[in-house]
């Protein structure tokens, strides 16, 4: 029972982050902040949902000798999460870099300190 509750908490938290990244993707003003929302939110929420599924598998686990296939399923789910943890931020980074190379300028609010010029003058 404890595992079911724990997995429910993890999955619901993951879904909340999914909603957050979807809202950010729709509402943020420019390419870079949208990628920020999609990259960070997607990675974390997928990880949380997958961890929730892995924990859910534990509810039928009673002993290693007869229930070892469950451990196999958990290892597979964890392998998927490691894969997502590595690849999702990298793809966000590559997209972001491609956007910068293509000359997309970040939106800068009027009146706020503009460090873009001095930060990028030597590159």
């Amino acid at each position: 029972m404890i595992f079911v509750i724990l997995s429910a908490i993890l999955i619901v938290t993951g879904l909340v982050f999914f909603v957050g990244s979807a809202v950010g993707l729709l509402r943020f003003p420019d390419f870079y902040s949208r990628m920020h929302a999609a990259g960070k939110g997607d990675t974390l929420s997928s990880l949380l949902v997958l961890l929730g599924l892995a924990v859910y598998q534990l509810k039928d686990f009673h002993g290693f000798s007869e229930d070892w296939p469950i451990l196999l399923v958990i290892i597979k789910i964890l392998a998927i999460s490691v894969f997502i943890l590595i690849t999702s931020p990298t793809s966000t980074h590559a997209l972001m870099d491609a956007g910068w190379e293509d000359g997309i300028k970040p939106t800068i609010q009027k009146g706020s300190a503009n460090h873009l010029e001095e930060d990028t003058k030597d590159i």
Binding site: F83, I86, T87, T90, H93, A94, D97, E101, G103, I123
Partner: peptide, 24 residues
């Protein structure tokens, strides 16, 4: 000459993407 060649000094993009590809 594309901008990639002019401004990426340490080639950080290639390091990050290349390391990930080596792993994956």
């Amino acid at each position: 000459q594309s901008r990639a060649e002019t401004f990426v000094h340490g080639d950080h993009n290639r390091i990050i993407v290349g390391t990930t590809c080596k792993l994956v």
